[in-house]
Design a protein around this nucleic acid. Structure first.
Lengths: 153, 153
DNA sequence: TATTGTTATACTCTATAACTATA
DNA sequence: TATAGTTATAGAGTATAACAATA
């Protein structure tokens, strides 16, 4: 007897539901792609932002990525402990740390970017380049509706 | 002095990154939309699947939604305790529970669906109906690349 | 032997509140 | 008074392993 196909009911037409499922699929394959590097999703994102903005401080990284200050602490500690990020007191503002990638961090980022390029190709294999561009455009227009991060007054 | 705009670096062209940010924006607004109902994202999804497939059991709900058996237990307990789902031993298979929505569960689901419709309209306000359909199509084609759930042998 | 549901447990991610040191 | 970073902590969400009852 053939397996009956269950319906997802009210979820079927919801963009939010499909966004979640698509993201979840990406997420699993991302982890597989990064296996052995010791870099997870969020630390990779932090390293990307630090590399693109040398001298940036923790709070700014958090605001760019939607991560709270309190949660940045252990993320940066982790990257510093792994020798991927250099943390130094900012001479212009001694409360803040100035962050920049180490040489090892730059190399690790390059390796990660190559792995992730392959991962993205896998996940988007059914979409034409035109459709991939459309997807980025549509997602970008949704993202802009996100609330700003950080403790509101 | 104008605030310098930080770059996200290597993240900028990644569909996975934008998927995550878009989902995150949806997620926050979903929580706000459901405020006061006591229904969160995953329990709502479970209730939707139970309502669409009366008599379904826990394991099947989990497989449809990508939730592990072990994690279904407290989800179903929660919905039963709230009086939204009815759980009875399946007479055809006494290992399994047959799940169906209570009258209260059906009413709660209807209320939730209305709130979520408004939430989706908010989040997709910048997209034409045509673009919304395109988004669902593209996400659906990504979702299909997700691995099947449950303890692989 | 396989499957349904269960318990116990652990790890990641995210959230809040209160603190310090500098500005 | 506001901001950068910190600590402690709590709640979701998700993962594994081992077990009982039933198929």
């Amino acid at each position: 007897m053939a397996r009956e196909q269950e319906s997802v009911g009210a979820l079927a037409p919801l963009a939010g539901y499909h966004l979640r499922r698509a993201w979840s699929a990406f997420s699993s394959d991302f982890s597989a792609a990064m296996e052995g590097t010791g870099l997870r999703q969020v630390p990779f994102a932090v390293l990307s932002v630090v590399a693109a903005n040398p001298g940036i401080n923790q709070g700014a990284v958090g605001r760019v990525l939607g991560i709270k200050r309190a949660n940045m602490v252990s993320l940066i500690n982790e990257l510093v402990d792994k020798g991927l990020v250099d943390r130094a007191v900012d001479p212009n503002d001694r409360r803040a740390f100035s962050l920049k990638p180490t040489d090892g961090g730059t190399a690790t980022l390059e390796d990660a970017v190559a792995r992730i390029a392959a991962h993205e190709q896998r996940m988007l294999a059914d979409l034409s380049p035109q459709e991939q561009a459309t997807l980025l455009d549509l997602l970008g227009r949704i993202e802009r509706r996100a609330p700003e991060i950080e403790e509101a007054a």
